[in-house]
Design a protein around this nucleic acid. Sequence first.
DNA 1: TCGGTCAAGTGGTACGACCAATCGGCCCGA
DNA 2: TCGGGCCGATTGGTCGTACCACTTGACCGA
Lengths: 229, 229
Amino acid sequence: MIVIAPDPVSDALSDLIRDLGEGARLPPERELAERLGVSRTALRDRLRLLEGFGVLRRRQGSGTYVQRLAPQGLESALDLALSASHLSIESLHSVRVALERQAAREAARKGDPVAIAHVGKALADMEAAATAEDIDRADFAFHQALLHATGNAALTFFADAMTGVLFRAVRQRRDRLKTHPHDKEVSVAAHRPLYEALLAGDADAAGRASDDHFQVWHDLFTRPRMERP
Amino acid sequence: MIVIAPDPVSDALSDLIRDLGEGARLPPERELAERLGVSRTALRDRLRLLEGFGVLRRRQGSGTYVQRLAPQGLESALDLALSASHLSIESLHSVRVALERQAAREAARKGDPVAIAHVGKALADMEAAATAEDIDRADFAFHQALLHATGNAALTFFADAMTGVLFRAVRQRRDRLKTHPHDKEVSVAAHRPLYEALLAGDADAAGRASDDHFQVWHDLFTRPRMERP
DNA sequence: TCGGTCAAGTGGTACGACCAATCGGCCCGA
DNA sequence: TCGGGCCGATTGGTCGTACCACTTGACCGA
């Protein structure tokens, strides 16, 4: 079971984390370092990695705890890669489209009424929005609710990591272009078919609605110089 | 531009990496630590994070270099999360299905003849395979080639990170069940339509072929107790 | 010209000390 | 008896120094 690094200390830590399970507290660094026969410096080095990945959480004065995989680390890495031009917004967006379609399909198939109601709530908020910022917020909540309606941890993890990055990047690009494709009517019309497909439990329709919904953004990427009349 | 951590040192490092660009070498740790007004210990702590994410590469005796975002770190984290039961194979597989479909669509739309030829080469290798291991290898190569045929860095990054994890997990489960759904004819038949769709440049057909292709795996997950006659 | 050798430079580890946040128990007062 | 505040032990965070392991390139000699 080789994990994290081809390194005895990392391997031992991985096993320990597996055995302890979520929420558990690790032994103090000083003790653990001695047990693994390594200095505290080297141990902390490995712990830092695991913390970065979102597997561990360290709290000064309290201890080190095992937590669910958190997307913050990945989000930061993507953010950096994006601004260093290793990744393009377009390619990230493409991944998001793929994940959202899958989420729409799974949410429709699962058909959890409570979770779908949260999606509906976000849509209602969008209709009632007064400012562009309100629309953005409701948009964000809509997709968040959709993801959680799948009950799929991996899907949620990846999508969460990308959502923040893309929202920032898109807003930035939108501002630069001084364009505002976010009319309320357009947004609501883009999201409603997806919600209705969820209600109907129609996975295929949900997938199509998700793809259609992204056409709005697509224009923003492929025709960045487009201006409004 | 807040990146990696709400921390002055990390922020400074992020800016530095952005400015230097891919392939560049960072100043020595001792010098950089002094410049940032922090101890080498604290600096190394941040560097370790960035290395884990695959943004940096450190080589003892040589230096620290900026590299393209590498998926190894994410792969390790997923591996750990999987074996710690935070993520299920099923949910990871679902993400992979979504990404592969998107990759198939983009590869078909792009229609790069050279890259598609590599896909065909993998298919030919699969037909010529003599052992189950050969089939696995060709299978792996097929999907690798498909991903690179998209020219989409983000898609490749995510898919790469998951492919290794899933291959290991699936092989493990397959061994445990003592089942071998990987008959050569079945594998080839599953992959050929996708290749043909790429040749035809038909994105929709490629997407459908990708989805169909995963039906084989689907049985492995949903009916794990299935036995062969 | 080729080859090895060696020294400087760089990341990796170790140790010891101290700082900062947390947590829990003890003590005091109401 | 109960409540609250104080204080000290615990634990993660940082620092400085020394040394080790590896790489690189220049130098020297055959």
